[in-house]
Each structure stands twice: as structure tokens, then as C-alpha cells.
Computed example of a mutant assay.
Amino acid sequence: MAFKRYADAVWQGDLQAGAGTLSTPQSGLFADQAYSFKTRFGEPGEPGSRGTNPEELLAAAHAGCFSMALSAVLGKEGFTPERIQTRAEVSMDPGMDPGPTVTGVKLVVEAAVPGIDAARFQSIAEAAKAGCVISRALSVPVSLDATLAS
């Protein structure tokens, strides 16, 4: 059976001076987490850059999904990982036309898996990348339902 997960975003003001909040009401993980132009396009640690951004959240989703996918494929192949650590590095080019564009994601994974050799691990990791829900989601159609409030 299909299911839905969702998050909410509220933005107020223009692009550069405005600010917004992100919430995950289903899980309650965070509510009203700040984000802004500076958290998205500025350097971490500079004044006004406290908060998250959509690309960071995409990276977190991809790292978590890939780690679970890798564990699943390893399990199907008879291996039990002791530990999987994944970093997803989302690259964005702010100067693209028609606007800022995510240009790629690099998954960097290190895993402790007893009884496996490097070649087999690499093959299984590639299969996990191909099967990862978020990896596949990055190429799906996006629909829109827009309503103008009165």
C-alpha cells in the first residue's frame, strides 16, 4: 500500500531579506526550524547563517536512505554490517540558468562488514545506490497543486 510523508515550509518576505521555517509534523523531529537565504547560499558560521537549508535536508535524507539500502543489500547477500557511515554531499551551482541547480550528489560511505572483500563490497554498494529510494527519487516527475489565498 502506498503512503505519504510530508514536511511543511513557511516563507515570509523577499528572497534575500526574508526567512522561513521548516517543520516535520508527522515525526515531530523538528518544528519551525529556521532557514533563510544566508543558510542556503552563505557560508556556514557567518552572521545570520544559523539554520538549515533544503540541500542539507536532501543530503540527510539521501545519506540515511542509502545506509539503509546498503544494509538491506548486504543482508540479502548474507553479510551483516557492524557499522555503515554515509555522507551525502549535495553540489549546487547558484549560477545556472534558469536558476540555482543541484548538479550532483556524491555518496561517501565507510562500512565495517565482516567477511566481505573490497570488490564484493563495491559491487553491493553500487547495487544499493541503484536501489536507494532517494537516489531514484531524484529523477521522478514533480507535480504541483497551487492555490492563491484570498
Results as ranks from 00 to 15, higher is better:
residue 1 M to S: 14
residue 7 A to P: 10
residue 116 I to H: 10
residue 118 A to F: 04
residue 92 M to R: 01
residue 67 S to G: 11
residue 46 E to C: 07
residue 140 V to C: 03
residue 149 A to P: 06
residue 102 V to P: 02
residue 59 A to H: 05
residue 95 G to P: 00
residue 55 E to D: 04
residue 145 D to G: 05
residue 135 S to F: 00
residue 23 S to D: 14
residue 27 S to Y: 07
residue 33 Q to I: 07
residue 108 V to C: 03
residue 112 A to H: 08
residue 83 R to Q: 14
residue 63 A to K: 01
residue 11 W to S: 13
residue 107 L to W: 06
residue 71 S to W: 07
residue 113 V to D: 06
residue 78 G to E: 08
residue 85 Q to C: 12
residue 4 K to R: 02
residue 9 A to W: 07
residue 94 P to G: 02
residue 46 E to V: 14
residue 149 A to S: 11
residue 137 A to W: 04
residue 143 S to R: 14
residue 77 E to A: 14
residue 22 L to A: 05
residue 30 F to W: 09
residue 138 L to P: 01
residue 44 P to F: 11
residue 21 T to D: 12
residue 76 K to P: 03
residue 49 S to K: 06
residue 95 G to E: 15
residue 86 T to K: 13
residue 72 A to H: 13
residue 107 L to D: 02
residue 130 A to H: 01
residue 109 V to R: 02
residue 140 V to Y: 04
residue 101 T to Q: 11
residue 59 A to N: 05
residue 8 D to G: 04
residue 135 S to D: 02
residue 57 L to M: 12
residue 109 V to E: 06
residue 115 G to D: 13
residue 24 T to D: 09
residue 86 T to E: 14
residue 2 A to D: 15
residue 144 L to V: 10
residue 129 K to D: 01
residue 90 V to Q: 03
residue 74 L to T: 07
residue 77 E to G: 04
residue 109 V to S: 13
residue 122 Q to R: 12
residue 24 T to K: 03
residue 51 G to F: 06
residue 49 S to R: 06
